[in-house]
Design a protein around this nucleic acid. Structure first.
Length: 196
DNA sequence: CTCTCGATGCGCT
DNA sequence: GCGCATCGAGAGA
């Protein structure tokens, strides 16, 4: 898997499905970042689904210049800047015209540990990328990668990882969402228990 | 133009 | 557990 890993990449059809389905299916897959001439990777162990007009917590609840990318074709990276300090990485889902994205909230680091430690000095290995902002810092992901096509981009993509059994997945309410009770209580945060 | 506040993380208590 | 840094997107005027 070292050199050309194109055949291992998840297909556009993988992303072009129901957002909640994709959020679950992304658990166990391998997020890969190529930067400074080296491969960094980790298995996705936590995700959240964000939909469209039916999801008050989603950026795509309203169509704005920033959220327009969520209305576009699937398999594209949506990276945004938050709290003045952090970036968050999402993958666009659903067919073009139907908004949706999955927030990647955590990975279990596999390749490039030395680089990640350099990005986050003093942090224990298991915590290098266990939050949405943390993983972007560890993998050097910024808004420069907003719009990157995960099917073709050499610097950012997702490969088939390890199979995840249904009983290893737990669903929880999403973190930090405001809005009505129904919005807050939706169990659209998925955690791969085996990885943590 | 101005104001509010966030799909967070870190440091301190 | 709690406060705060830090700044751009989005909304209202």
């Amino acid at each position: 898997m070292e050199s050309d890993s194109f055949e291992l990449r998840l297909s556009r059809a993988f992303y072009g499905r129901d957002t909640v389905t994709v959020a679950r299916a992304l658990l166990g897959q391998r997020l890969v970042r190529v930067t400074a001439g080296q491969r960094l990777s980790g298995l996705i162990c936590e995700t959240e689904a964000y939909r469209g007009a039916d999801d008050e917590a989603s950026h795509a609840f309203r169509r704005t210049p920033r959220s327009a990318i969520m209305f576009g074709p699937p398999g594209v990276a949506y990276v945004y800047f938050i709290y003045g300090n952090h970036f968050c990485l999402n993958t666009v889902t659903e067919d073009a015209g139907c908004p949706g994205a999955v927030l990647i909230r955590g990975i279990a680091p596999q390749e490039g540990l030395a680089f990640m430690r350099g990005q986050r000095p003093g942090v224990a290995d298991v915590r290098l990328a266990d939050g949405p902002g943390k993983l972007c810092r560890a993998l050097n992901i910024t808004v420069a990668l907003n719009g990157a096509d995960l099917i073709t981009d050499p610097a950012l993509f997702i490969e088939t990882g390890e199979p995840v059994a249904e009983h290893e997945i737990t669903a929880w309410p999403r973190i930090g969402v405001r809005g009505g009770a129904e919005t807050r209580e939706r169990p659209w945060r998925f955690v791969w228990s085996r990885a943590t």
